[in-house]
Design a protein around this nucleic acid. Structure first.
Length: 418
RNA sequence: GGCGCAUUCGUCUAGUGGCCUAGGACACCGCCCUCUCACGGCGGCGGCACGGGUUCGAAUCCCGUAUGCGCCUCCA
């Protein structure tokens, strides 16, 4: 039977990165098996629904490059079918009415178990199962009823979800049995926590997909990083393209222990992706990012500076602070770092440089350092601070060239007066 | 509290009874490169939660303990 999986996010806000992880594993499994991947919105809890979130979720998935098959479905649209099935179960004596609600009978003895694709055999004592509400007294189906009913209706073969659903699984198995529906395979993924071991939340850093996007991460890097939490290909391979991920992903290599979301490692991986980009692609992506973030900086200059920062920044979000001095973002230089004598010499040297390009600038500045009997760093640092406003910057000679003679001299003069 | 799940360097992980003197990556430390910062190169620090078994042999299997997490809602 062809594999068919689903992801079922709740439309309660921006797509959470933990949800993306689950989504990704479902997607990888489906694509690896040549199966289908469905997107279902679990909007049973109408009170918490955020309408814009439905569109936002899809936009986030498109950005991530994770596609789904068929139309997006909504749990609420199947409410009537759920009621019909519940009434059928009442007629069959498998459920009963209770203060306007419909409850499913759960057995009192024995165990309910399944072969979890990630964890192996899991068994639950039936005496722990309460008769669960399938239809609320207001007529809306509960999640625990609607979810298995929809899995059945959609012909879902593999339910891959977070481990917080483990204790729901025996209930849902019982519902499926009562319904006379075929049993899907279950795989429960480990949760992802913050660096402090607590549930990943806002105070750890970015948690919503749009936040990672805003900080300038590449979707490919994010996907690659997420794939590596709870799954690995072997003992050394980390960087993998989407196709490689799809080719290599199998559920039997998925681990059961919880993972910590390491922002530092994500940054490292993103940096590797950024550096591996061909220069023109890098510039395109950078320009696109800045435009999306609302910067109205000269595109040609952004493109010229792109190669100067490619080796140095780890995500596009660092560009404005690292390279903002090329535009309007130069911080006030620290006077303590400005050596008037050096600045005067640099001004003099640069005024005569012809042509005003990297190699001539370097030649002139090094000659100046020799004249002043200064080590390169002693001679260049004041100039760097004067021109970029910071002790940390892209290459000095390259930066001067991009700035041009007039702008460079003006900044050196301004700093000399300070 | 009950039930369930989990437990290899700080973090992500490799490991499915001998290949393990436990491998890789991130982080950290040192050195090299160097105009700053990065990148890159080289080296280092650092782990099988604990206790019992089983076995000729256990990180790997079993039991117990501890710890963490999840669920126990007419939330999802």
């Amino acid at each position: 039977m062809a594999v068919r999986v689903r992801a079922a996010p709740s439309p309660t806000g921006s797509l959470h990165i933990g949800g993306v992880h689950t989504f990704l594993f479902n997607w990888l499994n489906a694509r690896h098996e040549g199966g289908e991947f469905r997107l279902r919105i679990e909007n049973t809890d109408t009170g918490r629904e955020v309408v814009e979130a439905v569109e936002q979720i899809q936009e986030s998935l498109r950005w991530l490059g994770l596609d789904w098959d068929g139309p997006v479905t909504f749990q609420l649209d199947r409410a009537e079918r759920c009621r019909i099935e519940a009434r059928r179960l009442v007629e069959e004596g498998k459920a009963y009415e209770d203060e306007g609600a419909i409850r499913i009978r759960m057995p009192d003895e024995g165990v309910t178990g399944w072969e979890d694709l990630v964890r192996g055999r899991i068994e639950y004592p039936n005496e722990k199962l309460e008769d669960l509400v399938a239809i609320r007294s207001d007529g809306r189906p509960t999640y625990n009823f609607a979810s298995p009913v929809e899995d059945w209706l959609d012909g879902i073969t593999h339910v891959i979800r977070g481990e917080d659903h483990i204790s729901n699984t025996p209930k849902q198995i019982k519902i499926l049995e009562a319904l006379g529906a075929p049993m899907p395979e279950y795989a429960h993924l480990a949760n992802i926590f913050g660096p402090d071991g607590r549930k990943l939340s806002k105070r750890h850093g970015a948690v919503g997909v749009d936040e990672f996007r805003a900080e300038g991460y590449l979707p490919d890097a994010l996907v690659n990083f997420l794939a590596l939490i709870g799954w690995s290909y072997d003992d050394r391979t980390e960087i993998m393209t989407r196709d490689e991920l799809i080719e290599r992903f199998t559920l039997d290599r998925v681990g059961a222990s919880p993972g910590v979301f390491d922002y530092v490692k994500l940054a490292d991986l993103n940096g590797k992706y950024l550096r591996a980009l061909p220069p023109d692609k890098y510039a395109d992506a950078l320009v696109g990012y800045l435009r999306e973030r609302g910067y109205e900086w000269d595109e040609d200059r952004v493109r010229r500076t792109a190669p100067l920062v490619q080796e140095k920044i780890t995500r596009f979000g660092e560009y404005p602070i690292f390279a903002g001095f090329f535009f309007d973002g130069m911080p006030q230089p620290d006077p303590a770092l400005l050596d008037p004598e050096v600045l005067a010499a640099a001004h003099e040297a640069l005024a005569e440089v012809e042509p005003f390009d990297v190699s001539s600038i370097e030649q002139a500045l090094r000659a100046m350092a020799d004249r002043l009997e200064l080590k390169p760093r002693q001679a260049f640092q004041p100039v760097r601070v004067a021109v970029t406003g910071s002790t940390v910057s892209p290459g000095l000679f390259e930066s001067l060239e991009v700035l041009g003679r007039d702008e460079s001299l003006a900044r050196i003069t301004a700093a000399g007066k300070a």
